[in-house]
Amino acid sequence: MPGWLIYFIIFGTIFGAFGGAAVLIWFERRLLGIWQDRLGPNRVGPLGIGLALADVIKLFAKEDWVPPFADKFVFVFAPTAIVMAMLLGFAVVPFAPGIHVIDLNIALLFFMGMTSLAVYSVMLGGLASNNKYALLGGLRSAAQMVSYEVFMGLSLMGVVMLTGSFSLVDIVNTQAEKGWFVFSQFFGFVAFMMAGIAESHRLPFDLPEAEHELVAGFHTEYSGMKFGMFMVGEYLGLILISSMICTIFFGGWLGPDFLPPIFWFTIKTFVFICFFILLRAAIPRPRYDQLMIFGWQYLLPLTLINLLVTGAVVLWL
């Protein structure tokens, strides 16, 4: 691969992810509007697309304020951490054959490590705010993410067993032979998707910020661009999880030949993004104890059984 291409891919990934996140601000509202029989943003620019730009300008123009009672360094560091972690997660995503930042042989572990790092951002943000709501939000996110981390990993083990590799490129290539893993690893897919929502604390699992209980949860004290970074981090997480689902369970760039592979990848990812927004539009937020019970009492056994069965199949068939 020529040197310039790798830089092109790196910058393409960064700008693509950021651009995607910015457009998602507008796109999500628009989609929610459609599903709730409203119009959504439609005043700024054609179809209201200018809102994404306006929002960004607004966030940049806002006063960069740190509350006097907060832990200043941590308070500023927390939102940057989530963006960094999420962007690093994109490094291992194979967009098309040969188009990826890096093909690590431990790509899956790297991805899970990066998403786990994001929890620090939320927790530290909550802690540094020196605000009871933020603290409660941070606590919730810690418990929620640590719990769902467990079977997020376990749910992928079936895929790893079938592939025999942690490399995402290998996983995609294996799917070309064995068919999409969503069929053979259906329960793994279900568990991974749930865990993915919880990891990116998207609705309906956005308990860390549950606004009618905790004002705005961990980012109660945040405003301006620092708040903006939390928001961008959340959308980056959304895109990352969607692209991971697409890569791991839906054959990544694989698809009929009339479209180049990168388009298949983009389309599949886009569908999952839409699906996540649909979840937000349709499903109410569970209670906190329900969320934990759901994770430990249903998803964990499900993934364990899935792992056991997959193991048995690989061993004896």
Binding site: I34, D37, I283
Partner: peptide, 21 residues
């Protein structure tokens, strides 16, 4: 029930918005 909810909401993609401009 959750799946039905999703489908129900999805069906609203094709219904007209109530917004008055």
């Amino acid at each position: 029930s959750q799946l039905v909810t999703l489908v129900e909401v999805l069906r609203h993609t094709f219904s007209k918005a109530d917004t008055v401009q």
